[in-house]
């Protein structure tokens, strides 16, 4: 009886590899630096949102500070390679480790906070990190940032072109997807989902929910740091601007758009939001002459609001409903933002 449907869910074993191969061939077929760079950005954001998705969609904890972790990764690479001449690979490892350590430090007290206290706390953390990037000028170059970051290189391999970087970033995305796919159906994944469903029941089933939430928080910070490090190597320049509160909101938006607690949600959310951003950057100046692309944030905000009101479970579940019309998606109603109703339960 041991072999169960949930563990052999991918019925068409060749479908996904085929999709991956097709996707990976994309930059070779469409010879456009613009498209390649957009795909790289989607990949970087997907890495962050995958981690944030574990934290929000599975462990049920929100973070409005992941722009800060993203930035810590980026600045770790920038500072270590330009000021201390670290080898790029070591600097990238540091970019993963530093946010992880910071998350481990602040996570324990922070995750005791609930609902909006947690939202406020993580938001405060993100603002603090962002302010430090601006203010610690000797180390971070202040508002003008740090330029001249070398290309990522290991041995003879130098990631000096968009195409190479595309393969690097998406290889990382696939690795992370693979890992998360294993994770969510494992003992740890069940425990994480259990926290989202009922924290009381999870605790009485012997799950140390505090510790597990902390692990999810650290995991999400590591991935944000990894993305930040890769970003720094890709752009070869960092400044405080892309790591502020708006970035944090954008990550939450991506996680929510894709559908919290769904496997492809982060990928879908990052893709949709980046494409929408690109579209708006193109469309807004056409509609409002002289306007820059920065107005995209108006739409991001509105989309976030509308989604939270009318479709808190995100768009990720839409595909599933369409493909299996007979079956109602289990627990779709309970998806969306976990954390119960307003206020605490009495016990």
């Amino acid at each position: 009886m041991g072999r169960n449907k949930i563990f052999t869910k991918i019925k068409k074993p060749f479908l996904w590899p085929a999709c991956v191969v097709l996707f990976m061939a994309l930059p070779l077929v469409v010879d456009s630096n613009y498209i390649t760079s957009v795909l790289i950005v989607i990949g970087l954001y997907t890495i962050i949102v995958q981690g944030l998705g574990i934290l929000m969609g599975y462990a049920g904890q929100v973070s409005f500070g992941h722009g800060g972790f993203f930035g810590l990764g980026g600045y770790a690479v920038a500072v270590l390679t330009t000021r201390y001449d670290w080898p790029p690979v070591l600097a990238l490892l540091a970019a993963i480790a530093l946010p992880g350590l910071v998350a481990a430090g602040i996570g324990r007290p922070a995750l005791k906070l609930r609902e909006f206290y947690l939202a406020l706390g993580t938001m405060g953390f993100g603002i603090l990190i962002h302010t430090m990037f601006n203010e610690a000028g000797k180390l971070t170059g202040g508002p003008s940032g740090i330029a001249g970051i070398p290309y990522l290189s290991t041995g003879g391999l130098v990631f000096d072109s968009d195409i190479k970087f595309f393969y690097l970033v998406w290889a990382v995305v696939l690795l992370v997807l693979f890992g998360i796919n294993n994770l969510i159906r494992s003992r740890v994944g069940r425990a994480l989902r259990a926290i989202r469903e009922s924290e009381h029941a999870a605790e009485t089933a012997g799950i140390d929910t505090g510790k597990l939430k902390l692990k999810a928080f650290i995991f999400s910070a590591l991935l944000a740091g990894l993305a930040g490090g890769l970003y720094a190597f890709y752009v070869t320049f960092v400044s405080p601007a892309p790591f502020g509160f708006n970035a944090s909101v954008q990550f939450v938006l991506m996680a929510v758009v894709g559908g919290l607690g769904t496997f492809f949600g982060p990928l879908l959310g990052a893709t949709l939001v980046v494409l929408l951003g690109e579209f708006l950057r193109w469309a807004i100046p056409l509609v409002i002459p002289g306007a820059g692309g920065e107005y995209e944030i108006v739409f991001f905000g509105l989309i976030l609001v509308l989604l939270m009101i009318y479709r808190p479970e995100g768009l990720g579940t839409l595909g599933k409903i369409l493909t299996s019309p007979g079956k109602k998606k289990p627990g779709a109603a309970e998806a969306g933002i976990p954390g119960g109703g307003r206020g605490y339960e009495v016990n």
């Binding site: 169960n4 949930i6 069940r190 989902r193 259990a194 989202r196 469903e197 009922s198 009381h200 029941a201 999870a202 607690g261 289990p330 627990g331 309970e334 998806a335």
Partner: peptide, 10 residues
């Protein structure tokens, strides 16, 4: 306090 979105087995 079941984990409603998870399967019976899970």
């Amino acid at each position: 306090q079941l984990f409603g979105g998870m399967t019976v087995l899970e």
